[in-house]
Design a protein around this nucleic acid. Structure first.
Length: 250
DNA sequence: ATTCATGTTGTGAT
DNA sequence: TATCACAACATGAA
């Protein structure tokens, strides 16, 4: 799950703020009983994290590759997911609804305001996003492939393989290009383009029309030139990249 | 039936 | 010390 999906989740779960946890269950090994009777003080997303703040601690969820959640608040189903029979890792019941978290990595963060421990300047979807900062951090990775740097959560928190792939295609940049081979203008355009695409991703995801709007990810032909798309694991991260060798020359 | 995938962390070998 | 391959987690869609 990429950043925009987490920001959407946080938006959907806002009605839980002020609600008290009436019941806790699930197969997590965390001390989940701590949440029993506790009130949700805030819900927010940072990068690929979803954070639910309680009084003196917070619950941090990372959905990794296979994670999903299901929420019904005021009888409204807030995800496109269907009812799942399997046991949630964690289930929280409130007076106004229920939240189920599946196949995710959970952690308890100590603190009354863990939001302060997150640096929102590197969250691709945050209002606090700092392009100059990203430009500067990028320089510290000049020998790495750009596809690897885009996935680096300490540089572009929230960017995942789809955003990476689409953003590179939109800018006509080959995923295996090294940062040092890109001009400053190219880097700037890539950064602002990645952020702009992330916002589109959010909008499409919300309207459940993401897949059909992806132009190169998972495609066989380049929508720009009609040529064949190359699909290959790239970089030290060995994540799949799709690119058009004609429109994204090395 | 098999393979692949919107991801990260930890371990042990080199 | 750094880097790397690999494992582990765990499920749905094609």
């Amino acid at each position: 799950m990429e950043g925009p999906s987490l920001h959407l989740a946080a938006e959907q779960l806002k009605p839980l703020v002020g609600q008290r946890v009436l019941d806790v269950s699930g197969i997590t090994l965390l001390d989940k009983e701590r949440m029993q009777g506790n009130t949700v003080l805030a819900v927010f997303a940072w990068g690929k994290h979803l954070v639910i703040q309680f009084d003196v601690f917070a619950l941090r969820t990372h959905f990794l590759l296979f994670g999903t959640f299901e929420a019904r608040i005021d009888h409204v189903r807030t995800t496109g997911d269907y009812e799942r029979a399997r046991t949630p890792k964690l289930e929280l019941r409130f007076a106004n609804g229920t939240l189920k978290l599946f196949n995710c990595s959970l952690a308890i963060l100590e603190g009354r305001n863990v939001r302060r421990s997150y640096d929102f300047a590197i969250d691709i979807l945050s209002r606090a996003w700092d392009t100059d900062r990203a430009l500067a951090t990028m320089k510290e990775h000049r020998d790495e492939q750009i596809a690897d740097v885009l996935l680096d959560q300490t540089v572009f928190a929230g960017v995942g393989n789809i955003i990476k792939t689409e953003a590179l295609w939109l800018q006509g940049i080959h995923p295996e290009q090294k940062v040092s081979e890109l001009s400053t203008a190219q880097r700037k355009k890539l950064i602002t383009g990645t952020r702009a695409f992330s916002k589109l991703f959010f909008r499409w995801r919300k309207a459940d029309v993401l897949r059909k709007n992806l132009r190169i990810y998972g495609r066989k032909e380049c929508p720009n030139c009609g040529g064949p798309v190359t699909k290959k694991e790239t970089g030290k991260r060995k994540r799949t990249s799709h690119w058009c060798p004609r429109c994204q020359p090395r």
